[in-house]
Write a protein that binds this DNA or RNA. Structure first.
Lengths: 224, 224, 224, 224
DNA sequence: TATGAATGAGCGTTCATTCAT
DNA sequence: AATGAATGAACGCTCATTCAT
């Protein structure tokens, strides 16, 4: 009378490799998004993935390998989303518009993926998020107030003339991000004079691509 | 009257508190900039600072305290630099221009400080910088090619018509950064429709503040 | 049919949880008994237990947790030993007798356990054992000489009349311990007059429970 | 107009060595009584003593030296207090009575000194006081209930027949202490049979010195 | 195949102790 | 004589990683 043991639990189902890997990556992305690379623990990831740690290592290698795999997968997804709507025949502004929509669409639908791609550190425990957010808030506030003042001097009837506080804040955030990004880019191309770099951003911020394309530039006051 | 230098103490000359604290913060900023918070070790910081570990703790408290102190000092310096040139009486574009110059000036002169403020994670060991840089590079490339094409369709004689590859790359980086930043901002204000967010950035990118202020807006094709 | 012993694993044979926990507690009790809580190091405990430090933490938690676990286990063992021989139907003196035998039996068989329970501090490194032992020795000597003298004035034929030096020393030690214990108890009940406390101990020491139960008391000279 | 600075502070008065030493010992006793040896820090002692750490070391040597000095001073004080009232001509019970009074008098007036002498470990942070107190409480309760029962079987009109709960608790504490102390003593004289040791304490507890001196002994049931 | 059980290596932190002033 | 400033040495604890089953 041999007992017929039921197939041991849901946990250790024999699954095809691809499925397991997706499971694991999903768990890893979720955990890395929540904690950042260093603070995330392999224990938690294996638990969330519903497998044992040795399996984690068998499938994806070391913690670093796993993290890189997350970066790659989410990165590819992001690029794919953006490129999906690309239509080289469309006019530039339409192309840009579509790219932007696709990008934000990705962020909305894969928030964790985006976090892994973009916030590896600030999410790291979140311990210093407050400190950094405060600083960033001050910078955005600075720019935001500038925008508000500019707007109230301009044509209030149209454009961001009817801007809500939301609008100016969002634009200010965008501008600050543009500055940060350009700063990083500059750090990697350090041989440019500061004026050139600043001019470039100034032109983008003030004139926009549209004007630039049509040959209008912003010129520093002393050169006018 | 030759100066009599005191016999260069092996390690730890008795220094007034303020000086030591600056020494320590300088070292900490350098190390945190190189390794990020988690990967940096108090041992290395104390070594770079030229003091023993207990002094680190005596002066600045725990590792977290020390990190926050770095964030605060560099953050204040950055804000001070930007606000230094502020002139509320100047026209908005001039104000913006001065702010940008000040910002990039800070980045140039305090690269480590800037890294601590902005790259807490990607610098974390630098292990994944490559991976992330590659992704970012692809996005920038995408935008960059768009700009190049847009330019070649426009007035080549002026504006960024004479744009170097450098220019378009830099602008692309700025735009990508603006998008990332706005995405983060959006994650913190999740109740906005994607179209609104995308429009906002599109307007900034295409029209610039100048046009916006004067009431010109970019309108999605299907609404024209 | 020779037993096939498994190849004596270098260090850590895979053992069931319960066994490992006992192993660890045994080691911890031994080490804490030798060094006391503070001076004992987790390194030494893990070494004595024959496992690595992380296992220590995995099984029993922090050093404090481990110490408390030792206190609990040995405490329970002690109480169990005492209560094992309890017989509520027996006359009080027999009950007391059995309890004492059980108690001393425990001490004899679990000397380390007893040390952990009773000498947490004086054993602390054993650094001051000598100093404290000397003092205690003087007090015991004081009382011991008193007993000897009392005995030689009394009925030498019987009782401790035939007392060896051992006997008087042991009794003196007991009395000193009774005094210390009552002092501690008094510190926790500070509102009693010194005379009351001293009387209580005097009665125990001089009359014993037997007399007290039968209504005989010792009375200070000035009240006689 | 040169400012006449007042002689820098109360802190560093030049004091004769003996006074300083007493100051330091007083502080040390207070701190050791509160925290125990290991948990006490030289920093706190120097602060309480109102001197700098190097002075501490100059006057009393290492932390261990200092602790031993405390033990010695308080030990001498205790012995002196007890011996002060000694009168070798008095009858033994009176001598014992006077000794007990003197002892409890010392405890009352030098509680910190007593703590340093007797609780070096349990005071150590007090982290485990609860755990240990609970165990001891159980043992005292066990003995206490026994006493209560014995009393109610005996002559309730006199002796501890009129015993309050306080009395029985106190006596129980004393008996438990006697047992602990005798156990320690036994550990240092391990060649005695358990029956002998237990008998000794049983006799003290049940008969008291008075009976013993007069030749009456308690005999185990099976020998009667 | 899948895992509970195991560990090497390292980090943050704290102290008793002592120079240099 | 007196001290602020400094350090060597250790300890508790955790984590990524891997056997042995």
């Amino acid at each position: 009378m041999h007992a017929e043991e039921p197939p041991r639990a849901a946990r250790a189902k024999r699954l095809p490799r691809a499925v397991r890997e997706r499971q694991i990556l999903d768990a890893a992305v979720a955990v890395f998004a929540r904690h950042g690379f260093h603070t995330a623990s392999m224990d938690e990831i294996s638990e969330v993935a519903g497998i044992s740690k040795p399996m984690l290592y068998a499938y994806l290698g070391s913690k670093e390998d796993l993290y890189v795999a997350c970066l790659r997968r989410e990165g590819e997804r992001l690029m794919a989303a953006i490129e999906a709507g690309a239509d080289p025949a469309a006019p530039p502004d339409v192309q840009l518009w579509r790219g932007l929509r696709a990008f934000f669409g990705f962020v909305a639908e894969h928030a964790d993926g985006w976090r892994v791609l973009h916030q590896p550190a600030s999410a790291a425990g979140g311990q210093f998020a407050g400190e950094l957010a405060a600083l960033r808030g001050r910078m955005i506030g600075l720019v935001g107030r500038l925008l508000v003042r500019a707007v109230s001097n301009g044509n209030v009837a149209a454009g961001i003339g009817a801007a809500t506080r939301r609008d100016t804040d969002g634009l200010a955030a965008a501008l600050v991000g543009a500055g940060e990004s350009m700063a990083d880019w500059w750090l990697a191309h350090p041989d440019e004079p500061v004026g050139v770099v600043a001019s470039r951003l100034m032109n983008l911020a003030w004139m926009g691509f549209g004007d630039l394309v049509e040959g209008r530039m912003w010129v520093p006051p002393h050169k006018r």
